[in-house]
C-alpha cells in the first residue's frame, strides 16, 4: 500500500506544471546536425592550417582548443546567445563533438604537415 502511495506521489511530481518540459524533437535533431557539421568542418580546416603552419607537439593541440573555442563562440552567436530557444542544454553548443573533431583534426594535421614539410 505504501509503495502505491509513493508511485502516486512520483507521478504527481513528474506531471506537475513546472517539471514537464516540452520541445520539438525534430528541430532539436536538426540543430544538432548543424552543430556536428560545423565542428567537423572546422576541425578539418584547423588541422590543415596547423599542418601548413608547421605546428608540432603540444602547440597543435592548443591550436585545436583555440579553434573549438572560436567555433563555440560562433555557434553561440548563431543561436543569438539564447541556447534555451534552440537546445535543451548549453553543453550542446559548447562541448558536443569536441573529441570527435579531435580525431579529424589530428588526421588532417599530420596529412598537411607531411605534404608541406616532409615530402
Amino acid at each position: 500500500m505504501a509503495v502505491r502511495e509513493d508511485l502516486g506521489v512520483s507521478e504527481m511530481k513528474s506531471g506537475g506544471d513546472d517539471e514537464l518540459s516540452m520541445f520539438n524533437k525534430e528541430n532539436l535533431q536538426s540543430n544538432m546536425k548543424v552543430i556536428y557539421y560545423s565542428r567537423t568542418f572546422l576541425s578539418i580546416i584547423g588541422g590543415v592550417i596547423a599542418g601548413i603552419w608547421g605546428f608540432t607537439g603540444l602547440t597543435g593541440f592548443i591550436f585545436y582548443v583555440l579553434i573549438m573555442g572560436i567555433t563555440s563562440l560562433g555557434l553561440a552567436a548563431k543561436a543569438k546567445f539564447s541556447a534555451q530557444t534552440y537546445f535543451d542544454n548549453w553543453n550542446r553548443i559548447l562541448l558536443d563533438g569536441f573529441f570527435g573533431g579531435l580525431m579529424s583534426f589530428v588526421l588532417f594535421w599530420t596529412f598537411a604537415y607531411d605534404i608541406v614539410h616532409i615530402f
Partner: peptide, 18 residues
C-alpha cells in the same frame, strides 16, 4: 573565411519551443 562558411553553410537553427 572557413569559419564563416562552416557556421553559415550547414543551415539555420530551428526553434524547439512548442
Amino acid at each position: 573565411l572557413s569559419v564563416w562558411a562552416g557556421l553559415s553553410a550547414p543551415g539555420k537553427f530551428l526553434s524547439i519551443l512548442p
